[in-house]
């Protein structure tokens, strides 16, 4: 058979799935590894039957139902990644089993909402993307140094970043004005790297003027005198 390590892993899925099936036939409810094996097995076999990616995903989702499972198991069946051999090649299928089970192992309960980030020294600017493709900017990027094709009052954004939750971003579609809020960068306020417009302490005397001048020379929009 010349089985590869990856193929041998399919055999492991098959074995556990058969074990799960035999237990299910005895009327038992399934635990987490049993349920994961049955879902994975269903996807792999659906692909083998010549079904499409969407059909295989559906086969995984419908391989089991809440009533087949031990309490709490349904909530642990998200993000099950399975590599199956489809007619057009090996493809990844990710199954998120939808459950109504509330008996969740590891559940996090939050009584009060997280208090929103306190607003401090907010700067508002309107940004227009003058290029032909979308530009996205993430939370902690030094806004002054973002893509030269974004037009806004750059000087007002010196030493500032977007005021949105960490890890999120703002999209700037071509030609559409977008209002954003910015807050000062904290810590020691040293900008190293980026576009090289600052590359040092933000608040050093003359630094801001030099950065604006550099940006202007390089054609950053929003820096014209």
């Amino acid at each position: 058979m010349e089985l590869t390590p990856s193929e041998l892993d399919r055999v492991l899925i098959f074995n556990v799935a058969q074990l799960a099936k035999s237990r299910q036939e005895r009327g038992l409810k399934l635990n987490k590894p049993e349920a994961v094996a049955l879902i994975s097995h269903a996807v792999i076999e659906a692909a083998r039957d010549g079904n499409s990616h969407a059909q295989a995903l559906q086969a995984g989702l419908s391989a089991i139902s809440d009533s087949d499972l031990l309490p709490g198991v349904g909530s642990m069946l998200s993000g099950i990644a399975i590599e199956a051999v489809f007619d057009d090649g090996r493809r990844l299928v990710v199954v998120d089993f939808l459950t109504k089970d509330l008996d969740t192992p590891g559940k996090v309960t939050r009584l009060d909402q997280v208090i929103p980030i306190p607003a401090k020294d907010i700067t508002e600017v309107t940004v227009i993307n003058e290029s032909k493709i979308q530009i996205s900017v993430t939370t902690h990027m030094h806004f002054f140094e973002v893509n030269p094709r974004l037009k806004f009052n750059r000087e007002a954004t010196y030493g500032k970043h977007l005021f949105i939750p960490a890890g999120e971003h703002v999209d700037f579609p071509p030609g559409i004005p977008v209002d954003v809020e910015l807050v000062p960068i904290s810590g020691d306020r040293v900008m190293i790297g980026f576009a090289g417009l600052v590359d040092g302490p933000l608040d050093e005397p003359g630094m801001k003027e030099r950065a604006i001048e550099r940006a202007r020379e390089l054609g950053y929009l929003g820096t014209a005198k």
Binding site: S6, D9, L12, V36, A37, S40, A81, E83, L92
Partner: peptide, 15 residues
């Protein structure tokens, strides 16, 4: 660890 030939590190069977 998962299927070593997969596109992602968390493909079944996870062991």
């Amino acid at each position: 660890v998962g299927d070593p030939g997969a596109t992602v590190a968390n493909a079944q069977p996870l062991v």
